[in-house]
Design a protein around this nucleic acid. Structure first.
Lengths: 125, 125
DNA sequence: TTTATATTTGCTAATAAGGAAAATTATTAT
DNA sequence: ATAATAATTTTCCTTATTAGCAAATATAAA
């Protein structure tokens, strides 16, 4: 058995968080719904492809699915109420170094999502 | 070849980068050395436990091992050319956690600039 | 309750994993 | 270059795991 991860429970938690039934998740994954049940109960182990698809569906890393999430901290930010377009103009006024730092962070995040979207497109075609 | 990832090639690359022979890696993983060969050549797929151990041996995330970095690199290159306002719109589509991370960085930078402007005004008046 | 939906289980065929050893492919030394 | 050594890949075979269907059980809603 697998002592290093309770991956079944993690997948179940993410499925619930995304308000999906086992059947719905099975459909997205392209597997039989009984497999979801057995994976969640530790009878089967998900394949690599399963993990990649789950990562894309849940929008979390494979590590999060396999190892479980350690920080579920919710970030409180009152400045989030400031309209986004206001901030854009302010970014443009920043020093070049700060500006590129922000752009790097943005690009990393967007890349992450684009990559997920790209994978998702492969499944639905 | 319905392969979502060329995980075998990735593992091989990481093994080489760590200057390990298949036999040495097999020993660290606790598997037969022939399995490393088969995994690297796509005959077998590594188990979840294998991935966890590989992640720790290579000191990279499971996602890096599974997905590699090449695809992401390409997407990132495309993003460099995308105008800022386009990116901002894309931020709205991000998962909540990523979104607030970006906004936190932006706000930090903007606060920093405000403070700097404030100081400058004191000295020049 | 009854009905509908969701999840789990039993069974067998298909597929993959694992070990031993042979075959192939570098790599190094002479 | 050839021979010897190390490393990698492949072959054969047995065992273990998984896929898919049908049926059973559980959960939820009316």
């Amino acid at each position: 058995m697998n002592q290093l991860s309770n991956i079944g429970a993690n997948i179940k938690a993410y499925r619930k968080a995304n308000k999906l039934s086992q059947g719905q998740l099975a459909e997205k994954l392209g597997v039989h719904l009984t497999h979801i049940s057995r994976i969640e109960n530790g009878k089967y182990k998900p394949s690599i492809d399963d993990l990649i698809k789950l990562s894309s569906i849940f929008e979390v890393s494979i590590d999060d699915i396999v190892k479980g999430k350690t920080d579920e901290k919710h970030i409180e930010d009152d400045l989030q109420k400031t309209p986004l377009y206001e901030k854009i103009k302010m970014i443009e006024e920043l020093a070049e170094r700060d500006k590129s730092t922000i752009l790097n962070v943005i690009d990393s995040m967007l890349t992450k999502k684009k990559f997920k979207d790209f994978l998702e497109q492969q499944f639905t075609s």
